[in-house]
């Protein structure tokens, strides 16, 4: 294609102007904008059954993080080659909408999303009674509409609510909680700025992010991912704090599920 050689061409790769903000603009993570304490989770809004075609679906909002999830199946397994047929198969697809993050993403699933899909699958699998669904697969699709931190944790919760809404047999719901360790202080359910905040600039000690998935009734941990650079005792404390965070939110999700069941099968009126 001929082009005008006199014209100054822009860079081949475009960048968001927000990347060039001065680092001083990044908010102090200890203040938490004065809205909530370091150990507090953001208020959540959760509803089931909003996608009519899906077997089960759920929508979850925590602060500005918005996640939608739908469950299809159980249906016949597509690839019959590998897995044994005695148990069912759970397939997870985790996607971030291109406009969900600060930086525009691609529609094609990137390696980050594949990694999140794998983490989601590992967290959900222990909670689902897959042996009840031989020769079949259950599909879980998660779409993040807006990313304001702790997406994996909330995606786990949202997906397990969608599974429950779809009537898939489960041992327990799976709840997720994330934590951002910053030196000696830890922030539960971090927002996006807190998540990456001054970690980007800092060489401090004890920095890291932890995401935990919990089966609250069985008191079993079904998923755990952590990165950063933390001492081992900090890590164990972080795991305990995350478990508390999960338990704090449990009644909210219980209410949402009861509401969904009542809507689907209204109690007989006398």
């Amino acid at each position: 294609m001929p082009f005008d050689t006199k014209r100054i061409r822009g860079p081949e790769e475009s960048q968001s102007p927000l990347l060039f903000l001065s680092p001083a603009k990044v908010p102090e993570s200890s203040s938490r904008e004065g809205v909530r304490g370091n150990g507090d989770v953001r208020p959540v809004f959760a509803r089931c059954g909003l996608i009519s075609q899906a077997k089960g679906s759920a929508y979850l909002e925590a602060g500005n993080t918005k996640i939608i999830c739908s469950v299809y199946g159980p249906k016949e397994i597509e690839r019959k080659d590998e897995t044994d047929m005695k148990t069912g198969r759970l397939v997870c697809d985790f996607r971030l909408a291109p406009f969900s993050c600060l930086k525009r993403g691609a529609w094609i699933q990137g390696s980050e999303e594949r990694d999140l899909s794998a983490a989601l699958l590992e967290s959900l699998q222990p909670g689902v009674c897959l042996h009840k669904y031989p020769r079949s697969q259950i599909e879980v699709n998660v779409m993040v509409l807006e990313n304001d931190g702790s997406i994996l944790a909330h995606a786990v919760t949202c997906a397990s609510m969608a599974l429950a809404d779809g009537g898939i047999e489960m041992y327990d719901v799976v709840l997720g909680c994330a934590l951002r360790q910053n030196g000696e202080s830890c922030l539960v359910d971090p927002s996006y700025t807190e998540e990456c905040g001054n970690w980007q600039a800092g060489y401090g000690e004890n920095q890291g992010c932890v995401t935990l998935a919990l089966l609250p009734n069985l008191n079993q941990v079904s998923g755990l991912t952590a990165e950063g650079d933390m001492r081992e005792d900090t890590l164990t404390d972080a795991v305990r704090t995350c478990m508390d965070g999960c338990n704090k939110l449990y009644p909210v999700y219980q209410q949402a599920l009861i509401r969904a069941v009542k809507k689907k099968a209204p109690p007989p009126e006398k």
Binding site: P126, Q220, V221, S222, G223, L224, M230, E232
Partner: peptide, 18 residues
């Protein structure tokens, strides 16, 4: 110090064993 932790596999674990 620990730089990465990940639970793998399809089972769940007791908090104490973690």
């Amino acid at each position: 110090t620990v730089t990465c932790v990940r639970k793998m596999g399809k089972g769940s674990l007791d908090p104490e064993s973690i």
